[in-house]
Design a protein around this nucleic acid. Structure first.
Lengths: 184, 184
DNA sequence: CTTATGACTGAAATTGAAAATTGGTCAGTT
DNA sequence: AACTGACCAATTTTCAATTTCAGTCATAAG
């Protein structure tokens, strides 16, 4: 039932999956869905919540506070990028945002982003407390880090043919965030 | 004539200005316009070229190679942001990109961005040669700088109510680009 | 009784054909 | 020679008819 819905949302996006469709895949009548979920939106939220939980699990698995802050940061961002690239639902939803701007898919993607920002903010705050990085406003710094990461990993490719390698991305990230541009 | 067109494009955007409209403002017949310009698009390009020239003038006026790289950078970016905020045409065009995605306005905005990137890339390259900043890939660094600047000056405000002050923006910019996050 | 169902409903989206708009032309006017 | 606006083809807009779909509920099944 939840599986059927997940399958349909992943295959067709939010807008293009119908409750009839979900019912057929789940082998139940349409009315039955409404004994478990109040609305299409609530059903969708349930699925999304699952995906977000997976993301949180990934984050927890990758973070190791015995390792340096930047190591953790790279590892988590790489894993999340890969996760996103593999998960049909997230791919479909970001297409839907681009092509139709469906409010529900926009909201979903911004919740996903919120989770990532939340993790990053927490880690930045922790690193500051550990005096591993300078004093700073964690929410602004997390926001900027994510923007930079997205700029390097996807926006660059839209205007330039040769995509940056993982090593180049990491190198630029380090140059900016860790060391700064000024000469020693 | 060019003035009439500029006025109309600034007031209504690319899509919503008609050649009839321009002709009326300019007090000429529609046909007359076509003795000076081949198409609507070419007329528009002429106007845009003027705006871009103004931008280049601003850049040249603000850059002073006797001053430090980051001083120049801030001064130019601030001036350009202000210029953009005052120029009806650029405001209208970016609205049009957001609301309709008109190809001509998209192309126009990306040409404007290209000019800014071009300037930044040149300045980064110069600063590297002067050993004022580290060795780096000027095009990637310019790209990231602009992304960061836009993130701080406009994208932050979309998700957070309290806009960052000019001082905060400058401070974060410095933190990231100049000094880096790692403790000394 | 409880649980499941699919025909049904009103609201919203889609379609398509007619009407209006508009970039560009050119025969005629000045 | 310079200018003009009626005109044309193509695109865009309009809007009513049709279709789709989330959610309901009377009925059926267990």
């Amino acid at each position: 039932m939840l599986g059927a819905a997940a399958q349909s949302f992943s295959l067709f996006g939010y807008k293009a999956t119908t409750m009839e469709q979900v019912a057929k895949i789940a082998n139940v009548g349409k009315g039955t869905i409404y004994t478990f979920f109040d609305t299409k939106e609530q059903l969708f939220d349930e699925i999304l919540h699952g995906v977000i939980s997976e993301m949180k699990t990934i984050i927890e698995r990758e973070v190791d506070h015995r390792k340096p802050f930047f190591d953790n940061l790279f590892r988590v961002l790489d894993s999340l990028l890969e996760f996103r690239g593999e998960h049909e639902l997230l791919i479909k939803l970001s297409q839907e945002v681009r092509d139709f701007g469906t409010p529900q898919s926009q909201e979903a993607m911004s919740r996903v982003e919120g989770v990532i920002l939340g993790y990053m903010e927490k880690e930045v705050r922790f690193a500051v407390e550990q005096h591993e990085i300078r004093e700073c406003d964690p929410s602004v710094v997390a926001f900027l880090m994510l923007k930079m990461y997205v700029a390097l990993t996807s926006e660059w490719n839209k205007q330039h043919q040769e995509t940056l390698t993982k090593a180049e991305i990491r190198q630029h990230f380090r140059l900016f965030l860790e060391e700064g541009l000024s000469v020693k």
